[in-house]
Write a protein that binds this DNA or RNA. Sequence first.
RNA 1: GGGCCCGUAGUGUAGCGGCCUAUCACGUCUCCCUGUCACGGAGAAGAUCGCCGGUUCGAAUCCGGUCGGGCCCGCCA
Length: 591
Amino acid sequence: MVEYEMMRTLIKDSINHINEEIVVQGWVHSRRDHGGLIFIDLRDHSGLLQLVVNPEKSDCFKISEGLRDEFVISVKGTVKNRDKDLINPKILSGKIELVVEEIEVLNTSESLPISLFSENESSEEQRFKYRYLDLRTNRSQEILKRRAEFYRILRNYMDSNDFTEVTTPVLANSSPEGARDFLVPSRVHPGKFYALPQSPQQFKQLLMVGGLYRYYQIATCFRDEDPRADRLYGDFYHLDIEMSFVSDGEEVRKMTEPLIKDLVLNFAKKKLLFKDIPRISYSEAMDLYGTDKPDLRFDLKLTDVSNIFASSEFSVFRTAIQEGGVVKAINLKKAASKFSRSQIDHYTELATKEGAKGLAYIIMENDELRSPILKFLSEEEINKLKKETNFENGDLIFFGADKKELVNRVLGKVRDKAGDDLGLKDPDVIAIAWIVDFPLYEWNESEQRLDFGHNPFSMPKGGLKALDNQDKLNIVADQYDMVMNGYEICSGAVRNHHPEIMYKVFESIGYQRDFVDKKFGAMVNAFKYGAPPHAGCAFGIDRIFMILLNEDNIREVVAFPKNGSGVDLMMDSPSEVDSAQLKELHLRTIF
RNA sequence: GGGCCCGUAGUGUAGCGGCCUAUCACGUCUCCCUGUCACGGAGAAGAUCGCCGGUUCGAAUCCGGUCGGGCCCGCCA
């Protein structure tokens, strides 16, 4: 007698096993009781198999009458071909069935608190509370398997390119910049804390100093920041990469590109919009798209039209420019007929939510212009506008007039929404680009001081000299992000590996040497002993996986996600601990 | 921390001031049924409409608060 765990195997081999006796185990997927004959669809990880229970087997029949959805059973029976007109083309095993001879209930099931296989999909809250049931669906099973496949591709690629996988500590140190840390109190050292790393940044750089040629890790990262649909709470995964003897970010970009292309083309089976992945500077991205993570599946661009309206009669435009701001336009080609008045109002709403005072627009239909601001615009201005923005019949232009940063942000959002509303985001297409040359510093308006733009460990282009001579806000770092369909999926940099430049970079925004020594002691010390130039990056694995699977919520692609408040509804974590545990950790309860 | 939206039998929904003693489907329970595969048929049980308070002659429905959930802003070097 053959024992089968896998029905898929059974299906493949069924030709050879017709009339053989076999044993299968699985879940009762559904039961159809005809009174004198019972059909059961048995389900395991590989699919469905129909069982037939005849009344002559009175013991089996009795048991079968009591079976309910999701009972776990073990069945012995004979594989039979179905008659031609009884074949079910909807299931893989539809040509055969198992005529039951013995049946044993291995476990029962209460009726389910969520619906698994019907058309009513239960709420996310319910599904995640009962995630162990939700995982039984085809969709979940598929996601788990695809994720394993995804990991395998990452590892194969890295391994075959001389990268060494190194596991770095999870109990690490709190870092002063960046996200909020998860702290872990030390029992042995009263009053001291570990922190769970936001990324293995410092460890991987120390590996470079340690002589490792190339490093990678599928690294767990921990950040205590509020989640979003595309951002997990708590822990998430990086493909973390670092390469020694690299002084130009281009080397990292060239190294990682083929992997991402392979994932798009062969893993996700999607179209890649740009075969040669473009490099777009941060400032260009902000100018053209109003964001540093543009969705490049569609080609809408912002145009600076300040020169046209510098002395306009329309005071909103004129004043904005006089006060050092800009006027920019985005021409939504052929959108005029597609947008109703109320839809345009939605854009205005979006703009004001972002801080704009309003959102001027102008429409050209049947050679006629329509706009609330039309009376303020001269013919010359209109003509120049037509020329500079390719403004034609059927087009709709939105304007932003304010400080440059605000205008970019607002029109960037407008651009993104227009991409949705005009159906320009093809789900089968992936557009990838590198955004390069991020500013090392940025101006913190609320605190009126300089801050690090992206991360404090990148090498300023031009080194020490740049730090001495240039206007700080003009200093560019060899720092790069990869964007995919409007999501940031990777961030990296050529690292600052000279102690003197490290000190200087911090000093420029008011941190003294001892601050650097205290907070980044290991790194800055290590750099004193022949640190090789090095560069790297980190890809957000969960997010890439989400995009490639066309999911719009990142929690869907994780086995056991936490909800929007950082709660694991299934495990009910975080939870209280008893006072003895707190005492041992030298903590007192605050309640 | 802030804004917007949601909360109705086990599950998904309808109802959005009186026709509500709350709709429908799935599930559950009882009975019938020997070829179904979303089996079919007959019947039954199951909801103090998240919770508290208010307005009203009257509240699932309107208002306030609160709890829970979602999306967004802040935050995410």
